[in-house]
Amino acid sequence: MTTWIDANAWSGQFPFRRIAGTTVEELERKLSRLGFTGAVLSPLEAIFQEDSYGAEEALCHDIQGRTEQLQDVWHFKVVNPACNWWERDLRKSVEALGVSGIRLCPTFHGYQLADACVADLLVAAGELNLPVQVMCKMQDWRIEWMMATSDVEIDQVGPFLEGAGDHPLILSGLHTTDLRGVSKQLAERSNVLVDTSRLKGSWRTLEKLAETISLDRLCFGSLWPINLPDCPLAQIGAADIPQLQKDAIMGSSIMRILGNGPKGGPA
């Protein structure tokens, strides 16, 4: 069976815009209809609530009660390392909820990748054997109608990758042109993947990207339910690249990171 994983899925309400159908059930329906077999999932509320553990707990419950239209769901916990209680919260989430990874949202939480708290988090992630996903951007600044977020400084991404050593990382929300700035670090590190959520590109996007980075460093990510998986899926489907590379983007590359981890629910 072909493995298709959406590495950048969310459930729950995005506070800036009413979006219909944001439950785990809707996610499963949408992705399975498109042919996906799995998703990496976090609750959107956990970005915006100071006491976010409850949102993670609720998602854990929803994942356990899901209809299993998706074979695999990995629960990544949203961590804000700028909060003084993040580590206690993270360890509790690993023990009680069985989370399989960490998502960082610096654009909403107001820190930069070069900050000391990120280095501390990487140490804890290493101890807990949890991959770390960085949401470099979740919304185009031109549609931020109420609250302007800061951007991840692209020149901090390279040093961040170097500082993370061989820890498994996923970079989400990078623009096609951003990849030029980190192509050297990506070439040297098979532990780092970039998702497709903001690679809107130009014409023959993936064919051109292959000149900058190895395509097996890409993984499918949609940013559902804020964005549509149909957009990157259409790009990948139309791309004139070998099927093996499409398979890597759609699932086999991310499975290198997720393969041995738990899949949601208490351990």
Binding site: S202, W203, T205, L228, D230, C231, A234
Partner: peptide, 16 residues
């Protein structure tokens, strides 16, 4: 908006 954006990416908005 080609070439500022991939046409297939934009077609995806219609598919979705």
């Amino acid at each position: 908006d080609m070439p500022g954006s991939d046409i297939y990416h934009n077609l995806g908005k219609v598919y979705g």
